[in-house]
């Protein structure tokens, strides 16, 4: 049973404390939405979970399937099954998408003996699903991508790399309605009893395409309110001001 357990997590960046004791548990088969006003610490949580070296964990723990990831490197977390779709994925010129995907896949699934042809057949299938052309494979990672292409590529990676826990940081920004539909469909298809989702979003736009089981509101570095999808609707109507940490 897949379970990501975040307990009393606090973290700082540049000496400034951003997360002040976050508790959150995401299980396989569940879709969680993490909402909150600007500056609440939503993206910080994503960066802390992925193990970004600029973010310092001050206390608490991150445990995935009984493996303590709190002090682990980003690659160890990825190998444990954690995946973050970055809000603004960085360009890496000259690194070809095809070899990047293949290298990453082999790191994350060393036991898998899928050959190159089978692997790329699968990649092409998913490229089509997220609305990208096959020629995309010969481009460089995020280099010269439009905002929408970056997001589609993050979702493509999710589908190919098959993580257990998926964190989506503002995945809907930069996507038009049609693209959002494609991306949401790919997410829904990937969601299963084996996979847990944490959708980090400021607006509830993406939540019109994907029904969350749980909604958490992060205010000032702490979870201030929790509920079901109705909470997201309330936020759309009333904003965040009525929720106090």
């Amino acid at each position: 049973m897949v379970e990501l357990k975040i307990t009393n997590l606090s973290a700082s960046v540049d000496g400034k404390k951003i997360l002040k004791g976050v508790d959150l548990t995401v299980k396989g088969g569940e879709i969680h939405a993490l909402m909150g006003p600007n500056g609440a610490g939503k993206s910080t949580l994503g960066n802390v979970l992925v193990g970004h070296p600029d973010y310092k964990i001050e206390g608490g723990s991150i445990v995935l399937d009984n493996i303590d990831l709190t002090n682990k490197t980003p690659e160890e977390r990825a190998r444990a099954g954690l995946f973050l779709a970055f809000q603004s994925p960085i360009a890496i010129p000259g690194v070809k998408i095809s070899s990047f995907l293949r290298t990453a896949y082999k790191q994350l699934h060393p036991e898998d003996k899928t050959n190159v042809t089978q692997f790329f057949d699968n990649v092409k299938k998913h490229l089509k699903k997220v609305g990208l052309d096959e020629s995309f494979l010969s481009r460089s990672v995020n280099d010269g991508f439009s905002g929408g292409e970056r997001k589609r590529f993050e979702i493509l990676q999710m589908a190919i790399l098959r993580p257990k826990i998926v964190i989506l940081d503002e995945i809907d920004s930069g996507l038009d309605v049609d693209a959002l539909k494609l991306v949401a469909d790919e997410i829904i298809e990937y969601a299963s009893s084996e996979v847990g989702f944490l959708i980090v979003t400021h607006y509830q736009r993406i939540l019109k395409n994907i029904d969350p089981n749980f909604v958490h509101v992060l205010v000032n570095g702490k979870i201030a309110k929790e509920g079901d999808k109705n909470l997201a609707l309330q936020i759309e109507e009333k904003g965040y001001d009525w929720i106090r940490s």
Partner: peptide, 10 residues
């Protein structure tokens, strides 16, 4: 960090 978050060592 981006590449490491996809499982590549440093």
């Amino acid at each position: 960090t981006y590449l490491r978050s996809r499982g590549l060592s440093e």
